[in-house]
């Protein structure tokens, strides 16, 4: 079985994997990072989204061996060392953007990429379109959209206009 090394949440990690092992299986089963979830088997739901070398990736669509040498960030790697939540996590909590919590890690990881890749502004329509690859069954997305909108302002260091609330 191939042995691979990579960086996960800023720390070196290595594991022996089958060539058919998926990145999400490596994270959950070998590295015990169970915050990344599996919600489907057709790459539709986005519960497994993580960041690989700066881009959001569905970790069920990538083989573990393809992540050799990569820098991977999972939901467990977002909060700072003192436990302070990332602004996106904070806004999800503030706006009640989660209910059962199962889609949440993937939703948060996708949302962070969405905000980072839109430095000039992010409309409601862009948010909704940008979440096409993430399914939530609980919230109806209303509060997720609000949370991401609010997080855009925090992450880009801008003040949110009152009318935008």
């Amino acid at each position: 079985m191939p042995q691979i090394s990579l960086t996960v949440n800023g720390k070196p990690a290595s594991a022996e994997v089958e060539s058919r092992t998926l990145l999400v299986e490596l994270l959950r089963e070998k590295l015990h990072l169970t915050g990344t979830h599996v919600g489907c088997d057709t790459s539709q739901c986005g519960a497994c989204v993580v960041e690989v070398d700066g881009k959001s990736v569905k970790s069920c669509t990538m083989l573990a061996v393809q992540a050799a040498g990569a820098h991977v960030t999972t939901i467990e790697g977002l909060a700072s060392a003192d436990g302070k939540l990332h602004p996106m996590q904070e806004m999800f909590r503030e706006h009640h953007a989660l209910q059962c919590g199962y889609c949440t890690p993937g939703m948060v990881m996708s949302a962070i990429d969405l905000v980072n890749s839109h430095p000039d502004g992010l409309s409601e329509e862009q948010i909704r379109h940008g979440l096409e690859g993430n399914i939530c069954r609980c919230t109806g997305y209303h509060n997720i959209v609000k949370a991401i909108h609010a997080a855009w302002f925090v992450m880009h260091g801008k003040e949110m206009p009152i009318a935008a609330e």
Binding site: G35, T74, I75, E76, R93, L98, G101, Y102
Partner: peptide, 12 residues
């Protein structure tokens, strides 16, 4: 319950 769900610490 949100802190654990948001930080990947849920126990499903």
């Amino acid at each position: 319950e949100d802190h654990r769900f948001l930080s990947g610490k849920g126990h499903y």
